[in-house]
Amino acid sequence: MGTRRLLLALAVAAVLIALSLLLGRFGAYLVRAVAIAGIGALSLNLLIGYCGQISFAQGALLGVGAYVAGNLGNAGVDGVLALLGAGVATAAIGALIGLPALRLRGLYFAIATLAAQAILEYLFKMLEPFTGGVSGLVIRQPAFFGVPVASDQVSAAVSVLVLLIAWLALTRLTRTNLGRAFLVVRESEVVAKGMGIDVARTKAWAFAISGFVAGIAGGLIGFAARLASPEAFTLDLSADYIAMIIVGGLGSWAGPLVGAAFVVLLPEAIQRVGEAFDIANLLSALRELAFGLLIILFLIFEPRGLSSLLPRLRWAQPRRRGAAPSLGEPGGAAVATKGGERP
């Protein structure tokens, strides 16, 4: 990442944080929802977009984060430590979910993650002392560095700050040897082995790091909703996150953020358009249909996602800078294999 891009990211985050503090509660809620979804989408993008490991367990991993952060927060642990604790615990669970990836690939591994999602959902209901069972876990108001986060505005500002940190950390990560190893594993495990990359270890790191970020996002979800319940972390949520990275642009760093904004704000936009024309209830019924249709259209006409549109605008750079470097590109792996095709 160049200095110019870094400064731009910092400026955007500063504006968003300031805006969050000035907005009403509803506006702040939207900013927070987009920021948290953005963190979760970044985490999934690392796994699918950069390491090529398809996972349908993102919803459950967010749930693990929410429950861990909620329990720690309820026990009086500071919000920052609770979020870090949620990240560590979810990283461990994420690595565990990734174990089958050592033997399974592609569709078979994706099915294994589906099973993991189902198992975790079941555990959310059964581990009552930890999760509150089917009633869910009511989470107390969090405090960060001892300061209670009482308002939606402050909570939104905190979420934007965490998003910025996650974004900076993950974009930096992909410029390291480990990040480049992710790309090689994504392109071809055989080539990765040939290059001396420990494929199993690389995948385990991808799951752990992705899990860590997902856990933090889950913790923020729990603190925001003040309730972690099994019904909130189902396969539907996993599907929403996959939609975010597909719509935004798989394998780019701007994509998950654009996708998160799109998926979170689209229902609100449809609702308001419906209200303006007095057909809100009709549009409500068609909303899921429209959402599904949009994803299909994206896959057909714009498979690289919304973020790929940005460079084509006049004011933007002609080259797609935010995208994950392919093999053979500067910043990518040293050798090219498949011409840098996206997964």
Binding site: F26, G27, F262, E268, A269, V273
Partner: peptide
Amino acid sequence: ALFAAGVAAAAAPSRAADLTICAWGTIT
């Protein structure tokens, strides 16, 4: 533009009246 218009509309409250009641249900 449609998307932006929808989101922008989110910033403004709906119709004016003497008093407002707000309800939500599972319409879908």
